[in-house]
C-alpha cells in the first residue's frame, strides 16, 4: 500500500509553523516512536507488576530473566550447559526432519504423478493426518522406550505430514497452461517433468519443508516436556519443577530466538534455491 493512502494528512507536515498538537500528531504517525513507546511501556509494566502485587515468586522482573539467562549459559544443568541442551534438541530435530521429509516428499510427488498410488495412499493418510503428532507420544514411548528414538519418531511424524501435503499440492496445482506450452514445443514426458513439473512445484514443496521444520521444532519441545533428560523442553520443565520462573522465561527466550533464526535462515535459503518463486502481493 502506498504512503499517500496511509498518510492522507501529509499536507499538514508542510505547514511552516507547527503547533505542539501538530508535532504530537506527527509523532503519533511515526512508527519508530511508537515502537519505542510500546517496548519501554511493556518493560515498565512487566517490571512494576513483578515488583508490586504479584510477588517475584510468580513473576520475575526482566532484569532477573537476563541474569538467569547469563547463569544458565555458564552453569551445568543436569549434565549439560545451555548450548549442550540446545544442541541436543536441534540434533533430534535434524534427524527427525530428515526422516520425515525423506519419506513425505517422494510420497507426495508419486501421489501427484500417479493416480493409483494416490488412491492407495490417500485414504490411509487422511486417517493419520488429523491426529496431532504429539498424540503419538504414548505409543512411541511404548514402542521405542524413553530414549532418542521415541522423540525422533514424533518429530518425523510431525515433519512428514506438511512435507507430503505441500509436495502433493505443489505438483497438482501447476498451471496447466505451462504444460500446454511445453507440449507445443515438442517435449517428451521426461522433459515435461524436468522442465515444468518440478520447477513449478518446487516453491510449494519448499514452503512445505519450512512448515515441517517449524512443526518439528515444536514437536521436539513437546516430546522433551513429556520425558527427557536433555534439551530445551527439558530445561523449561526443569524450571517449572524447581519453581524458578526466571529459568522458564529465559529458556523460552532461547527457544523463541532459535525458532526465529530458523525462519530467517530458511527464507534466505528459499530466495537462493528458488528465485523464480512468485511473491504474493502484500
Amino acid at each position: 500500500m502506498n504512503a499517500a493512502l496511509e498518510h492522507p494528512t501529509t499536507v499538514q507536515g508542510l505547514q511552516r509553523h507547527k503547533s505542539p498538537a501538530a508535532i504530537l500528531r506527527r509523532l503519533l504517525k511515526n512508527r519508530y516512536v511508537l515502537y519505542l513507546v510500546s517496548i519501554s511501556g511493556l518493560l515498565l509494566i512487566w517490571h512494576f507488576s513483578a515488583v508490586n502485587f504479584a510477588t517475584s515468586k510468580y513473576m520475575p522482573t526482566p532484569w532477573m530473566v537476563l541474569k538467569e539467562l547469563w547463569r544458565i549459559a555458564h552453569e551445568n544443568l543436569a549434565g549439560k550447559d545451555l548450548l549442550g541442551h540446545l544442541w541436543s534438541s536441534l540434533h533430534r530435530v535434524l534427524i527427525g526432519f530428515a526422516i520425515g521429509s525423506a519419506v513425505g516428499v517422494p510420497l507426495g510427488l508419486f501421489m501427484a504423478l500417479n493416480r493409483y498410488i494416490n488412491n492407495l495412499v490417500k485414504p490411509v493418510f487422511d486417517l493419520i493426518k488429523p491426529m496431532p503428532p504429539i498424540s503419538w507420544i504414548s505409543l512411541a514411548i511404548l514402542w521405542f522406550g524413553i530414549g532418542e528414538e521415541s522423540k525422533v519418531f514424533i518429530i518425523a511424524i510431525g515433519a512428514f505430514v506438511p512435507a507430503l501435503i505441500n509436495s502433493y499440492n505443489g505438483i497438482r496445482l501447476v498451471d496447466p497452461a505451462l504444460y500446454d506450452a511445453i507440449r507445443m514445443l515438442g517435449a517428451n514426458r521426461w522433459q515435461t517433468m524436468m522442465e515444468v513439473t518440478f520447477p513449478a512445484g518446487f516453491p510449494a514443496l519448499f514452503a512445505g519443508l519450512q512448515i515441517s521444520l517449524s512443526v518439528a521444532w515444536s514437536c521436539v519441545l513437546a516430546a522433551e516436556l513429556v520425558s527427557a533428560r536433555s534439551g530445551m523442553g527439558f530445561l523449561i520443565i526443569l524450571g517449572m519443577t524447581m519453581s524458578n520462573p526466571s529459568m522458564i522465561l529465559s529458556g523460552m527466550v532461547v527457544i523463541a530466538v532459535t525458532a526465529y533464526l530458523i525462519t530467517v535462515v530458511l527464507s534466505k535459503v528459499e530466495k537462493w534455491v528458488c528465485p523464480w518463486k512468485v511473491e504474493l502481493p502484500q
Binding site: S218, L221, G239, M240, S243, A256
Partner: peptide, 13 residues
C-alpha cells in the same frame, strides 16, 4: 516466534 507448547510450563506454574 515462541512455539505454543513452550508456554505449557509457564502456564502450569
Amino acid at each position: 516466534p515462541i512455539p505454543p507448547v513452550a508456554w505449557i510450563p509457564l502456564a502450569i506454574f
